[in-house]
Amino acid sequence: MDLDQRAAAKAAAHAQHGARLRLDWGPTGGGSIAAAADIAVVVDVLSFTTTLSIAAARGMRVYPFGWKDERAASFAAERNASLAVGRFEARSLDRPTASLSPAELLRSEPVPRLVLPSPNGSTICAALEADVPDLQIVGASLRNRTAVASWLRPRIADGASVAFVPAGERWPDGSLRPAVEDLWGAGAVLDLLRDTIQRDETSPEAEHAAAAYRAVVEGGPDCLRDALRQCASGQELIAVGFGDDVEAAAELDGDDVVPLLTADGFVAAGPA
């Protein structure tokens, strides 16, 4: 086997081409497994896809963007959209305002069009949209896991392959930090799809996510809420005063909506 053949074999292995349900982390892993998939399910429980689910359920059109900077403001202005404020900025205002904070968004008045910057889930969605033509991209969280699974089920039955992309977080040096809450979020959807596909068509990575979710909820819904509070990302939010965001993220099936990325932002998808 020459160098080109070995490179091709390595790429195919990491793309999990043998599986129709596959999973890998962050922008690089997600790009690898989504390149030949029909659907990508991006999961960023604390907080992008949780906030996205709430926004879509409230009738908002949401545009993903990367870091919040002057480019985000221009991007929002071009689309006649509101730009979500950061968590700490929202706290300093005298009224609830559209924010990456899911709890703050639940308290605020809905806006028709919202640019939602996020360095993890939002950035992954924008990159997949740019890099993988014809890929359908949806946002999943614990809040909308049943709605997403129900939407996926007939598409999988028709032969679609699905790439699950847990976003993870970032260490200070910019490297990826796998975040257990995103593994649970992906696993929560995958667990509902076990009867839709042969087990040998699910990658071990995807199987592991479903097993991780089952393990954390085996004692009941309160176990999931407690685990979210106790995981590193949950502890980080609680420590800086955003425990309400953890509680909002832990509301299993709180939203009956599937945010689908279109040419004009995320909107609630039609019936499965």
Rank of each mutant, 00 (worst) to 15 (best):
G185H: 01
D158P: 02
R20W: 13
D264E: 14
R95E: 14
G241K: 01
A215T: 01
A98H: 02
D245C: 04
V132F: 08
P27E: 14
S92W: 02
V216D: 13
N120A: 14
F266S: 10
G139P: 00
L3E: 15
I197K: 04
G29D: 01
R113T: 02
Y63T: 00
D69A: 11
F65R: 02
L23T: 07
S99D: 05
Q198P: 05
G219S: 15
G254L: 06
A15R: 06
L116V: 10
L237T: 03
A140G: 11
G254E: 04
A268N: 12
R20C: 06
T49C: 10
V189P: 00
E201H: 08
Q16K: 09
G243S: 07
L193C: 10
A84D: 03
D94V: 03
L3I: 11
G243L: 08
R6P: 05
A147H: 06
A227I: 06
D245E: 07
E169H: 13
V62F: 01
A263W: 03
D226I: 02
G219L: 12
A209E: 00
L183Y: 08
L116A: 11
P154D: 08
R91T: 07
S141D: 11
L106D: 06
E218R: 15
A232K: 00
Q136T: 11
A263E: 15
V138Q: 03
A90R: 12
D200K: 06
F65A: 09
A11C: 10
E70L: 09
A179C: 15
T28H: 13
A81G: 02
S150W: 08
L260R: 15
S122V: 09
V138P: 02
D158Y: 04
I137P: 10
A13L: 15
G241A: 02
E247K: 05
L3F: 06
A206T: 08
P221G: 01
L100C: 04
R229S: 07
A8R: 15
A210V: 07
R194A: 15
P172N: 11
G220S: 13
A206W: 04
E218Y: 06
E247Q: 10
G174F: 13
A37F: 13
T262P: 06
V43N: 04
I33V: 15
S203N: 05
E205I: 05
P64N: 09
S175I: 07
G168L: 08
S118A: 12
S233T: 11
C125R: 02
Q5D: 10
T123M: 08
V85F: 05
G26D: 10
G168A: 13
A56E: 08
G86Q: 11
L105D: 02
V257N: 05
A130T: 09
A73N: 09
N80M: 05
L116Q: 10
D173I: 07
L23I: 10
G234C: 04
A215H: 05
A55G: 01
G243R: 06
D244K: 02
V41A: 00
A35S: 09
R20S: 13
